[in-house]
Design a protein around this nucleic acid. Sequence first.
DNA 1: TCATTCGCAACAACATAAGTTACAAATCTA
DNA 2: TAGATTTGTAACTTATGTTGTTGCGAATGA
Lengths: 154, 154
Amino acid sequence: MRHDSRLSRMLHVLIHMDRHEGAATSETIAAMLNTNPVVVRRTMAGLREKGYVRSEKGHGGGWTLGRPLSEMTLLDIYEAVGEPPVFAVGPACDQPACLVEQAVNAALSDAFEEAERLLLKRFGRVTLADIALDFDARMMRHAAQAHVASGCHS
Amino acid sequence: MRHDSRLSRMLHVLIHMDRHEGAATSETIAAMLNTNPVVVRRTMAGLREKGYVRSEKGHGGGWTLGRPLSEMTLLDIYEAVGEPPVFAVGPACDQPACLVEQAVNAALSDAFEEAERLLLKRFGRVTLADIALDFDARMMRHAAQAHVASGCHS
DNA sequence: TCATTCGCAACAACATAAGTTACAAATCTA
DNA sequence: TAGATTTGTAACTTATGTTGTTGCGAATGA
């Protein structure tokens, strides 16, 4: 696989759910994400455990938000999908006997850990509501664009 | 594979080469890295193109440093191995039509790009000589440790 | 009772770094 | 020149983790 897209997908879904009347089925969500319902259930299971979403079985069931978007950060969702490894690059060996390799690992892990701290700190400061707000702004621009494209210059 | 270890391996090798008399064969290097000579040639090809190492065929051939460790940064080597993707996490789709997904991608890529800039900036400030120096310090500590462990308390 | 929907296990597909095999080409030595 | 050494490279296999798929059980509501 190229990379892990669970975080991205979950953010996408949660914002759609916020704008969605009633429960969304795994089927509906799968269509949004261009995937299939089992993948949706599998990934959303982590969010359910943390209470970010709820699921109901049977007729009229599906997924609903467990709390407002303003009370979920990117960090929350990253943790809920299992805190997957952030980096695709890393050491050849975790506990090398070779002192050269130990020095190399130390230099690299210092750098990677600093970058990860920065990333997660930033994730912790961005709420899903922030992204939803940006979405609204994009909608406005998109509508304005369409208005101009339609030929109306009023 | 768990992750890309080319950068780590190349740093390891370059420091060994600096402490190595004459040319090191792919075979020798492969033994250091617990891999095989073809992997070594394949990975080192990138460093050769940039002039960080030279290779000679035939009897007495092998690999030599193309410049001192003080004139190579982690960033140089990262670039020489082909600037592999830093992150294992990313967007589900690169050019989404969905405006929600666009907003999500924007939020994530802002954060990832900031972290990557920090990482590469740091890579650019660390030379291989810095790591070699840390290796020397580790050697000292290691020797002292062995001395104490030997039972000598002088 | 039956359709709907989630839960979950098991397995296949896929992508990519790493490992392996095979052979050509270059270089040195005798 | 013959032969050993060593790199260069293509082609294929292996390993690992996410994603995709199938199948079936369980819960819920009409």
